[in-house]
Computed example of a mutant assay.
Amino acid sequence: MRMSTSNVSTTTPLSTTQERRLLDYLDEQFLELTRGYKKRSHPSSNLTTLPAYLDASQRILDLILQIPPVDPSASLRSTLLLRLTGEVFNSVPGYTPDEQSLSVLLDWLRDLDRGWLAVLRSRGWDLATRSGTSVQLPDGTRSTPLSQTERTRLKSMLVAGTEMLEEWIEALRTDVETTQAGRLEDLFSGVLAEMGFLRGEFSV
Rank of each mutant, 00 (worst) to 15 (best):
F89N: 14
T129H: 11
S44Q: 13
T129W: 05
Q136T: 09
S143P: 04
L54F: 00
S122I: 01
L106Q: 14
R59A: 02
P138A: 12
S103W: 07
S45E: 14
E87F: 14
I60T: 01
S44E: 14
L137D: 02
S143Q: 04
T48L: 08
P69R: 04
L76I: 11
P68G: 02
G86S: 11
G140H: 03
Y53S: 07
R142T: 12
E99W: 12
D107T: 13
P68Y: 02
R130H: 10
L76K: 13
P43Q: 12
V92S: 10
P138I: 05
T133R: 06
S44F: 10
E87R: 15
P97V: 11
P97D: 10
L106M: 12
S122M: 08
S45L: 06
L61H: 11
R114A: 11
D139V: 13
Q100W: 11
S101D: 07
G86Q: 12
L117G: 05
Q136Y: 01
T79C: 09
R121M: 04
G115P: 00
D113Y: 04
L47N: 08
D113I: 10
L102N: 14
L81M: 15
R123N: 09
S75T: 15
L54W: 00
E87M: 15
T49Y: 02
G94V: 13
W116T: 07
T141E: 04
L109I: 13
S143L: 03
T144N: 02
T141A: 03
R77Y: 05
V104R: 11
D139W: 00
W125H: 04
V70S: 00
A52S: 12
L106D: 10
S57W: 00
R123V: 03
L76C: 09
A74D: 14
R110W: 10
S73W: 08
D111S: 11
G115I: 05
T96H: 14
S131R: 09
L109H: 09
P93H: 12
D107P: 00
S44G: 10
F89Q: 15
R123F: 02
D139C: 03
I64H: 04
L61C: 03
S103H: 10
L84A: 06
S101E: 02
L65S: 03
Q100P: 06
S103C: 11
S73E: 07
T129L: 08
V119D: 01
T129P: 00
W108Y: 15
D126Y: 07
Q58I: 00
L120K: 05
I67M: 05
P93C: 07
L61I: 00
D111E: 09
D113S: 09
L106A: 08
Q100Y: 14
T48W: 10
T79W: 05
E87D: 15
L61S: 08
L106I: 12
L120G: 04
D55H: 09
S75G: 10
T85F: 03
L61F: 06
L120H: 07
L82D: 05
L80Q: 14
T144S: 12
Y95R: 03
I64V: 06
L54K: 02
D111W: 07
L112G: 08
P145S: 04
L117S: 08
A56Q: 14
P51A: 10
L117P: 01
L65C: 05
L54H: 01
S78A: 14
R121W: 06
L50T: 11
T48F: 10
L127A: 10
P43F: 05
S134L: 11
R121T: 12
D55K: 13
S143C: 09
S73Y: 08
Q100V: 15
